[in-house]
């Protein structure tokens, strides 16, 4: 149970005892959160409220082909030099060094294998382990980008998708600064903020996002989290998932399987 949920539960159940006499110890405050309460409260929050989209990235499956990046660029006409989604390559060496790379966002694949490196001692060392991590907008529940937009040009739809109104955006760039994940940019053609929309124009027509369709490794899973029977709900119910920069409290809706601590 997250701290927020805990406090909300406390506020709900504790209201009455506070009403009838705050002199008595509020029993709800002393109750420890029970196992499974998090899943339950998440279900309560999301099930039965219509369609709420979610996204799961399975980093253990990603092969780093860059299909998602290419599909996204073509589908959404993303300007050169900017990315709505990108793939990062992480390579670990025995001495603890980590190399992170994302040439052109991974759009042209990762053709060059990282060479063996020389240790300071002179001895060669081959990489120890490595993996790919696809990234995209986290469509946070408590989004810092919508929070800072001065004109109300950034907003969240009922399905939890964070969008930009290109007719009202003034192009100040504050949302770009406020996004902890580097998901936003100012489109040099429209001078307004650009970002991943989870292919809102596709998913509202019953199609999957372009990156999900094009992924040959099933590393990207998209679906309706308020439907307990959906693929994504089953994956969320049976996996340990992580989010990026959870300490910032933005509560991302994009969740990761197999996230390494070096991924920030």
């Amino acid at each position: 149970m997250s701290r927020r949920r805990f406090l909300e539960t406390v506020a709900k159940s504790g209201g009455q005892s506070f009403l009838f006499g705050s002199l008595f110890v509020n029993t709800a405050l002393l109750k420890l959160p029970q196992a499974g309460a998090d899943a339950k409260s998440r279900a309560e929050a999301e099930i039965g409220k219509g369609v709420i989209y979610g996204f799961v990235v399975d980093t253990t499956k990603c092969i780093g082909c860059g299909s998602c990046v290419r599909a996204c660029r073509a589908e959404n006409n993303v300007p050169d030099g900017y990315n709505r989604t990108w793939v990062e390559q992480y390579t670990f060496y025995p001495d603890g060094e980590v190399f992170v790379n994302s040439p052109n966002g991974g759009e042209d694949g990762f053709a060059e294998a990282l060479p063996t490196r020389n240790r300071p001692s002179g001895a060669e060392q081959a990489p120890m382990r490595g993996f790919f991590v696809p990234k995209l907008c986290n469509h946070c529940i408590d989004t810092p980008c919508i929070q800072v937009c001065p004109v109300g040009a950034s907003f969240k739809t009922d399905e939890g998708v964070v969008l930009v109104d290109h007719e009202r955006c003034v192009g100040c760039g504050y949302c770009v600064q406020a996004c902890p994940f580097g998901s936003r940019f100012i489109d040099p053609r429209s001078h307004t903020a650009g970002k991943c929309t989870w292919c809102h124009h596709r998913v509202t027509k019953g199609l999957l996002p372009a990156c999900v369709v094009s992924c040959p490794a099933d590393a990207r899973i998209f679906g309706n989290v308020s439907d307990p029977e959906s693929t994504i709900s089953r994956i969320l119910a049976t996996n340990r998932v992580q989010v990026l920069k959870s300490y910032l409290g933005t509560r991302p809706r994009t969740r990761y399987i197999g996230l390494d601590s070096e991924v920030i």
């Binding site: 937009c149 001065p150 004109v151 109300g152 040009a153 009202r168 955006c169 003034v170 192009g171 100040c172 760039g173 100012i186 429209s190 001078h191 307004t192």
Partner: peptide
């Protein structure tokens, strides 16, 4: 990016 929309900040302040 859009100075002509600058007054949106006073018309629809968030």
């Amino acid at each position: 990016g859009h100075p002509e929309r600058a007054l949106n900040i006073m018309f629809t302040p968030n």
